[in-house]
Each structure stands twice: as structure tokens, then as C-alpha cells.
Amino acid sequence: MLRIGQDVYDAIVAHARRDHPDEACGVVTGPAGSDRPVTFRPMLNAARSPTFFEFESGELLQLYRDVDDRDEDIVVIYHSHTATEAYPSRTDITFGSNSPESHWVLVSTRDPETVEFRSFRIVDGEVTEEPVEVANGKM
């Protein structure tokens, strides 16, 4: 299960809406071993594409440095789908298998009126959806 604060949840959805029709991406970090997504960190989509995303490589290096320095984990990796459902694509599954320790959050912005926010684990090419519990206030 993914437990996430309302503020972080709202920030992810707002980022996805803002970058539509391109895919938005980013992470939420938290204390190592806590499984608590605390710090929202939007990332540049180097692909600037409606069908693909890739963390910009300089930002990716800085992200891992910061996470190490602060003794944090990348608790959530999120990105948006802008024309399809919030479910991992084949490409997501291939890349996602390299980050099995993170929750993979997908947001779909295909309908401006409806929020689709779902969370998955991707391990060895296997996708498992998990419930999302949105908590009031800060985590």
C-alpha cells in the first residue's frame, strides 16, 4: 500500500496537469527505510514528449547525491500518461524493473475533470497494483 499526504498527492497531480500534453515526471523522497513519501521533487522530462519520459541525466545524478547525503530513499517515482490510462506501459515495466524499491505512481491527464492516480510495484517485469491511501496533512 502507498500512504501519501494530501499535499504531496495534490502537488503530483498539479505537476501532471501543468505539463500536459507532455508527460510529467518526478519523485517523492523520504527517510531511508521509512516508506514515507515526504519531499516532493519534480524532475525535468528530458524527452519533453507526450509518449515518453526520461529524467534529465544531470538532475538524476544530483538526485542520487542528495538522497545519499540525507540518508533518504526514493519512495515514489511518478509520471503521467496524457492520453491513456494510469497503468504502466511496456516501456515503464522494462525501466521500472530497475527501481523495484520505489512505488511507481501513474497519473492520467486524459480527462481534465477526472483524477486518475494509481500506484504499482514493478519487480522483475511483474506489475502489482497497490491501494493508495491519502492522508490529511503532512506525512
Binding site: 545524478l61 516501456t91 515503464d92 525501466f95
Partner: peptide, 30 residues
Amino acid sequence: NDEDVRFLGGIETPVADGNVVTILPAVAGG
């Protein structure tokens, strides 16, 4: 040394004693 080797010489990039090579999983998808 903090420079993505895709912008250097890829697999042919020269390396030398004292250099630091960092490998990270690419975070990407569709």
C-alpha cells in the same frame, strides 16, 4: 567525473587513474 558519458565518447570514452565512474539506473518510461 559527473559528466554523462553519452555526451563524451560513450563506451569508447577514455578513462584514467583517479577518475570516478558513477553508474545509476536510468529512470524513464512511456
